[in-house]
């Protein structure tokens, strides 16, 4: 597989949100606006790249029976590092995403990539895989966020183009499911061509 396709497969063929359908909890919960979706995607990408790199390095020396606990410790460490850094330098972002940052530990995408890719491949390839899947996840969340923000609040990235409210349902939980469902249909229809 070429280096370039390692990155692009995360966008289309193995898009974590619309094709693999992994990590649905943060996807549904944090995409109330485009900015929140983008920030959540970037936070996940940070952890994903670092954990992919470290796991690909240590995979050969980790005994088979304890590989899951070891991976989880590695992932949890990076999530905590991220959490501390965000609290220190971007407290506002940390406040909006709050609970969903520690929950990155149990995000299936990260352990999924560790299991499916990083423990079988080299450091460089694993880093690229992390970047690719990370970008795919970030873009998906941002797109869902944009759609929900346009319909729900009448704005894009906080810039309001109608006065008053949008369709409130889209900011709340049911809207997340509806938008995700339709985008998944659209994505898979376009991707098939």
């Amino acid at each position: 597989m070429s280096k370039f396709s390692l990155i692009t497969k995360g966008l289309l063929k193995e898009n974590p949100t619309f094709v693999l359908v992994l990590g649905m909890c943060p996807t549904l919960a944090t995409t109330t606006s485009a900015m929140n979706g983008l920030e959540m995607g970037l936070a996940t990408m940070f952890v994903l790249i670092l954990s992919n790199i470290v796991i690909s390095l240590i995979a050969p020396i980790v005994p088979d029976k304890v590989h899951i606990p070891v991976y989880i410790v590695v992932i949890a460490t990076f999530v905590t590092v991220l959490q501390l850094l965000m609290q220190a330098y971007v407290p506002d972002v940390y406040k909006t995403l709050g609970l969903f940052i520690p929950l990155i530990v149990v995000n299936c995408i990260i352990l999924g990539r560790a299991e499916a890719f990083a423990n079988k491949n080299g450091v460089w390839d694993s880093a690229l895989d992390g970047i690719g899947i990370g970008i795919g996840f970030t873009l998906s969340l941002t797109v869902i966020g944009i759609v929900r923000e346009i319909l729900g609040s009448g704005s894009v990235f906080g810039w309001k183009f109608i006065s008053g409210d949008g369709m409130l349902a889209f900011v709340m939980a049911p809207g997340a499911f509806i938008v995700l469902g339709y985008l998944m249909v659209l994505f898979n229809k376009l991707a098939k061509k």
Partner: peptide
């Protein structure tokens, strides 16, 4: 791929 599991190397690794 992964190393063989024995009690000692599992404990040491973790």
């Amino acid at each position: 791929m992964a190393a063989k599991s024995s009690l000692i190397n599992m404990a040491a690794c973790l």
